[in-house]
Computed example of a mutant assay.
Amino acid sequence: MKQHLIVEVFRSSKHDGMYLYVEKKTGLKEIPEELMKRFGAGISAMTMLLTKEQKLARANTEKVIKGIRETGFYLQLPPVKDEYLLDLYKTPTEAVY
């Protein structure tokens, strides 16, 4: 089995940092409807030749290829925010002059 794919990467119109990798020739037409409702409109971010030796910023290349081959897509979720950053939004702040 060849270890490369021509992949199109779509970014979510609803969630920053969420990306959907699909085989270029298939596009988004075989993505489950429920996933597309949550993902929103797919905005094409790039097309690339993906090989198993290639490094991706936030995804394991072999898992991306395996996901596309087995399910027709690979969903990359946004990075988890550090808990202390989330606490900043919960803590009331007071302006001091």
Rank of each mutant, 00 (worst) to 15 (best):
V64F: 02
V80E: 10
F10Q: 07
L20Q: 06
E23S: 13
L50N: 00
G27T: 14
G27L: 15
K66A: 12
T51H: 11
M18W: 07
E94S: 05
P32S: 11
H4D: 11
M48H: 03
I68E: 01
Y19D: 12
Y19K: 15
Y89N: 12
L35R: 08
T51W: 03
L49C: 09
A41N: 13
K90F: 06
F73A: 06
R38L: 06
L88T: 10
V7F: 09
Y21I: 08
G42Q: 05
T91L: 08
E34C: 05
F73E: 05
G17Y: 08
F39D: 02
I6H: 11
F73K: 03
E70T: 11
T47I: 14
L49S: 10
A95T: 10
V7W: 05
E83T: 08
T51D: 08
M36S: 06
T51R: 09
T91F: 05
L28T: 15
M36F: 06
M1L: 13
K29R: 15
S13G: 10
L20F: 10
L86F: 04
E94I: 10
I6S: 10
I65N: 01
T93M: 08
Y21F: 15
R11Q: 15
G42L: 09
V22A: 07
A41G: 08
T71P: 00
P78V: 03
D82E: 14
S13I: 08
V64Q: 01
L88P: 00
K25H: 10
G27H: 14
M18A: 14
E8R: 14
G67P: 07
K90P: 00
Y19M: 15
I68A: 02
K81G: 00
I65V: 11
V64C: 02
I31H: 01
F73T: 06
L20K: 04
Y21D: 01
T61H: 04
P79N: 05
E62G: 01
L28Q: 12
V9A: 07
Y97I: 08
K24D: 12
I65G: 03
A41L: 14
L35S: 04
T47N: 11
T47D: 03
E62T: 14
R69L: 13
D16H: 12
P79V: 10
P78K: 02
D87C: 03
M48F: 05
V9D: 09
